[in-house]
Structure formats: structure tokens, C-alpha cells
């Protein structure tokens, strides 16, 4: 056994692609978390459940309403966003100002209930969801085989992340979000309806999770536990990028996906822990996160 294993390009690029796909999901989910934490100081442990609901939304709307993938891609995030509105208006609003830990406990509890119900109704073994016809097949490149659907995931999630980033960093509505993060009380004094913005932000953040869920349905099986599996990693990513940094969440999500993919190739035993290792290092050397904004 040599110290430097011979590099198998096909394997390396395949793992790199898998890493970028996972990274796309990390980016979408951590973006939602960062938006919600940034403005609302809510640690939204229900984000994984909303992701799962997105995947189930796609599956259920196909089974019972006959809506295909494209309709699901359009409608399910809206539906998931509305569930978020309901949760924010009925439960989360009641604990606003009670501290971040309460929001963590509340949303964690909600996530457990939703997961439990779906496990009871659908079992935990996972349900299949077909890749839409238009996106089946793939492209054979010299170094790898590129499945079309994976390219689609990458392009769509990058596009959505970029759009969300532009919305937040470059528009007037976005300046409300950023300012509301810093000083919601002063925003109210300026005549801005902060409670409405809070609801919209929460709904938008969880709608991103719903979208990620629909995207994930054809590649990972649709399972009640899919959300809780990915959520812990996503939280680590948000911590690495810095809580509440939008660009940080996106770049860290993608970057960590890639690092995870490379680790799978070079040292597979560590692939499940490498992100947490990075998190530990970041917490030691730059505790505010890699993308913390200077005050």
C-alpha cells in the first residue's frame, strides 16, 4: 500500500459531483436557516421536517392529485411556505422575545411530531420517486458520467441561491431584512411592519427547504427521516459560515459538500465527520464563523 494512492479520475470526479449535489442541498437548507436565524433569531430545528415535507409533498401530489414533478416543483414550495406561515403565526410568534433556546425546543418538538406522524403513516423505509422524463439519462464525459438530473439540481439550486442572495443583498426588501436583523425595534419606529416581514421571512426560509425536498425526491428516497439526517450537518454548516450570513451559508454549503465528497474519495472513513471537524476548527480559530460581518 502506497502512501499516495493512485488517483482514479473517474472515481474522483464522481465523488466530486456527489459532493456538489449534496452541497447544493446543504446550500439551500442552510440558506433558509441563515435567513430565518438572521432576521428572527429563531433556531429553526423544523427546517429538516419542512425539507421532508417538500419531498412528501411531491410524492403525495403525484399519487393523489396526479401532479407531475414540474407542478410539484412550482406548488410544493408554496404549500410548504404556507405551512411555515401557519407555524409562525400560531406557535413561534408566542415565544418571540423568549430567547433562542425556546425557538430551538419548540421547532424541534414540532419536527419530532411531524416526523413521527409521517413515520406512522408511510413507514421509514422510503418511497421511490421517478426522475422526470425530460431529465432522465446523462452525458458521458471523458472523465465521468454526468446524470442530467444531477446537473439540474446543481443549476437550479445555484440559481435559487443566487437569486435569494441578490434579493437580500441588493434590493430594498432585502435591506429591510438586513436592517431588521440588527435592530427590529428601530425598524418599527420607521414605520415598517416588522411582524409581517417576520412571517414572510420565515415562510420564505422554509419554502426553500420545501424546494430542496422536491429536488431531493428523485435522488434520495422519500423518507420521514430524511430531514433529521441532513439537518445536523446543515446546522454545522451554518455555524461554520457564521449564523445569519446569507452568502456565507451558500458558499459554505457548497464548499462543505465538496470537502465531504473529496473525503469520501481520499479517506472514506472520515467522510461523515469531516464537516464537524471543520466546525471544531472554525469554532476554535474564528468563532464568529468564516463569513462573519464586521460590526
Amino acid at each position: 500500500m502506497s502512501i499516495f494512492p493512485e488517483i482514479n479520475l473517474f472515481g474522483l470526479f464522481s465523488q466530486l459531483l456527489v459532493g456538489m449535489i449534496n452541497g447544493s442541498f446543504y446550500a439551500l437548507l442552510s440558506l433558509g436557516l441563515a435567513i430565518i436565524f438572521g432576521l428572527l433569531r429563531i433556531i429553526n430545528f423544523a427546517q429538516g421536517a419542512f425539507y421532508m415535507l417538500g419531498a412528501f409533498g411531491a410524492w403525495l401530489s403525484l399519487q393523489f392529485l396526479g401532479l407531475n414533478y414540474w407542478w410539484a416543483l412550482l406548488l410544493v414550495p408554496v404549500g410548504v411556505g404556507l405551512l411555515g406561515t401557519l407555524l409562525e403565526r400560531t406557535l413561534i410568534r408566542r415565544i418571540s422575545g423568549e430567547g433562542e433556546l425556546y425557538s430551538l425546543l419548540l421547532t424541534f418538538g414540532v419536527a419530532l411530531i411531524v416526523q413521527g406522524l409521517f413515520s406512522k403513516w408511510f413507514g421509514v423505509s422510503g418511497l421511490p420517486y421517478q426522475v422526470p422524463e425530460l431529465l432522465q439519462g446523462g452525458i458521458r464525459l471523458p472523465v465521468m458520467y454526468l446524470p442530467t438530473y444531477r446537473v439540474w439540481i446543481l443549476l437550479l439550486s445555484l440559481g435559487v441561491c443566487l437569486a435569494a442572495w441578490l434579493l437580500i443583498e441588493r434590493t430594498r426588501l432585502g435591506s429591510y431584512l438586513r436592517a431588521g436583523t440588527e435592530n427590529p425595534q428601530l425598524m418599527k419606529a420607521f414605520g415598517i411592519n416588522v411582524p409581517l416581514i417576520v412571517t414572510l421571512t420565515y415562510s420564505f426560509g422554509v419554502a426553500l427547504a420545501g424546494l430542496a425536498g422536491v429536488l431531493a425526491a428523485p435522488v434520495y428516497s422519500v423518507s420521514p427521516l430524511m430531514g433529521s439526517n441532513i439537518l445536523i450537518v446543515v446546522f454545522a454548516i451554518v455555524v461554520i459560515g457564521s449564523m445569519g450570513s446569507i452568502g456565507g451559508a451558500i458558499l459554505t454549503g457548497l464548499g462543505m459538500g465538496v470537502i465531504e465528497g473529496l473525503t469520501k474519495y481520499f479517506y472514506p472513513e472520515a467522510s461523515a465527520t469531516v464537516i464537524f471537524l471543520v466546525m471544531v476548527l472554525v469554532l476554535i480559530f474564528k468563532p464568529a464563523g468564516l463569513f462573519a460581518r464586521a460590526a
Partner: peptide, 16 residues
């Protein structure tokens, strides 16, 4: 109450 996450002009344009 100047917002650190906003530029000078964004601060100026913030209150509707």
C-alpha cells in the same frame, strides 16, 4: 441606530 449591514445610501433610503 446606523445599520452596520447597510451602506450609507441604504441607511438613508431605509425608512419608507
Amino acid at each position: 441606530g446606523i445599520f452596520a449591514s447597510l451602506t450609507v445610501e441604504e441607511n438613508l433610503l431605509l425608512p419608507p
